[in-house]
Design a protein around this nucleic acid. Structure first.
Lengths: 198, 198, 198, 198
DNA sequence: CATGAATGAGGGTTCATTCAT
DNA sequence: TATGAATGAACCCTCATTCAT
């Protein structure tokens, strides 16, 4: 099956890139990892760039699917519960695909002069992620759990906290239980750092 | 003066890397920007890697100096004021050296298999930043502004929010006034997303 | 039928080479044109080189057949008439197989160090062509239409004029009627550029 | 001197191409011939194509210079004398740069679908050559040496005869003295193949 | 016989680094 | 010390050829 081969290649690429970094990953490294020869890669992808784009797209699509599934599953539940589920989904996915976030942040993503195509790709990803988180906002507001004045910024801020939490874990090599992380995030995000009376 | 030349080279490197990205920046690009020839670069830096490391170190040192100055300046002020000043210092520095954060995030920084030397360098940077923010924690706790149970995570979370805010601005190409950003960050960080009674 | 397939492949090769040039023509291009897969080509030809040689041979054989038929047809007619017929045959063939002349001139054909096999193949072609034209020489001499001293060079010169005429047409994209071309060639070849008295 | 190196590279390229053919000539072959490494070639030419174009251009320019010089030198002499000089100049140049004509004829030059840029280059060359020969036409006509009705085609036809003569010599490996060749060409061109009365 | 995915040697090109001037 | 041409290893990509189905 042609599709299986594509997937195998993308998976190999993900692994190698995670290990070596984007710019250090040679086509032959990927090929070797899949167990095929270089030429074969080019039977499935036009060139290096397309392969990497396909990887990014696939990863993004996968993550979005996970999030959408979770959102669907929790439909009807209270805001806090749904947000909890969403964070769990993201964290669990990130744990499995830590490499993905690397890619997201890596290389050309933040270049000032990045080609608009590349920028769009990155922007679309971050936006999609932000959007999913933001889709809970209305409920949060309705249920009186979110302050309206800053609501539009919450998704961005949450993402930031999520990311820095992941990075810290990585740097400290101290994996924290997912539930603990979520609790921390929810607590800090909703209650703030300042103690509440009562 | 030998030192001036080194600085000029590092500044050029910062500019070019900001424009083209790390892996796309060639030694000759840097040389051209400084207005010297490639060979000259090698009179000041052993090789490409050392030059980039020197750049990272210089940037880090500069940021730390800024933060330390700010901490020194605000010594004695209440926690909230001092944090405000720190955030302002970071944001202003980031505005001028957006490139720096790029470098921080870029390329090899997140590689699983990164050489321990590189990883340490990155870790040291993030840690130093975290530490500066964390240095205010005791005061925050003493002054009853911070909840003790999560305090150790606050610096990390703040850094994450800071970063995602910067990224969002960049993606949206909508620069927000620094004061507004700080207000938002402080509000959300301290008060949380959930409305407080009274 | 095995032979039909061979012919189909050669025809496709002729077309593609005419369109893309020799060295730019890939086996797959030919296969696609025939409507088969690459592998099939190798069921009919040992390798790329043999296929191209077969094409050249086929083309040459075809042209020779045309010329021999024409020579046969005009047997007994006066020299001028027979030459006229020969030129017409060549021109008409060239019009249909402009590609062929390209091949003749192309690539390895003029290489100093060309393998003797390739060179011979080319030489044989040009020689065969020259020979057919030269076969009329005896009649031309007998009928007093040709000057004996230069007669051996006439075929070569005629071929040259023919070729440059074709090339010019191609470059100017101004197709001239065949009859006009023949008239011009015959006039210039037989009468010369200098006006004749009387 | 930068220019000397360029020239050396072009000369090496000319030699190698003459020996191996255009498409068989690798950049490394050229480099080896000059006695430098591949990289050096790219210090003087953007890429392979530009190098080859530069070669073609240089060769063309050189030939044109020779012809213009000859035309200048013979100014005022009778048509026949001037044409003689021109043919001699071309033949002598061709002898030294047989490779050039090869290039002219080779590869992409006759492709139907050749990019307009390539075609133009070739067309311009042939046209320039044709033009130089044609520049003598007015005198030929004035002096009554050329028949007016076919005059516009004479340059093309002469070029064709010239080329086929050179090719024949090459194929037969029988170098003929230049003077003899010129005499033959002039005789056949001006007087025609048919014997003249008187 | 036909297929077409897999192969991998080979060629073009880049660029960090060197070193003679 | 500055220069910048030369170097050549390394990487991306192509495509003739093979062979299991």
């Amino acid at each position: 099956m042609k599709e299986e081969a594509r997937v195998a290649i993308l998976e190999a690429a993900e692994q190698v890139i995670a290990e070596q970094g984007l710019s250090a990953t040679r086509m032959e490294d990927i090929a070797t990892r899949v167990g095929v020869s270089v030429g074969t890669l080019y039977n499935y992808f036009e060139d290096r760039q397309r392969l990497l784009q396909a990887l990014l797209d696939a990863q993004a699509q996968q993550l979005m699917a996970v999030l959408d599934t979770e959102l669907e599953r929790s439909r009807g539940a209270p805001y806090r519960t749904r947000l909890h589920g969403l964070l769990r989904a993201i964290l669990e996915h990130a744990q499995k695909h830590f490499r993905f976030l690397s890619l997201l942040l890596e290389e050309r993503s933040l270049r000032v002069a990045a080609s608009s195509e590349e920028l769009d790709r990155h922007q679309r990803l971050v936006n999609a992620l932000t959007e999913r988180i933001g889709s809970l906002n209305p409920e949060g507001l309705t249920q009186g759990v979110l302050r309206p004045e800053d609501a539009p910024h919450y998704p961005t801020l949450l993402l930031g906290m999520l990311q820095s939490t992941l990075l810290r874990q990585f740097l400290d090599r101290q994996p924290t239980p997912v539930d603990e992380q979520i609790a921390l995030l929810l607590r800090c995000f909703l209650e703030g750092a300042s103690p509440r009376p009562g």
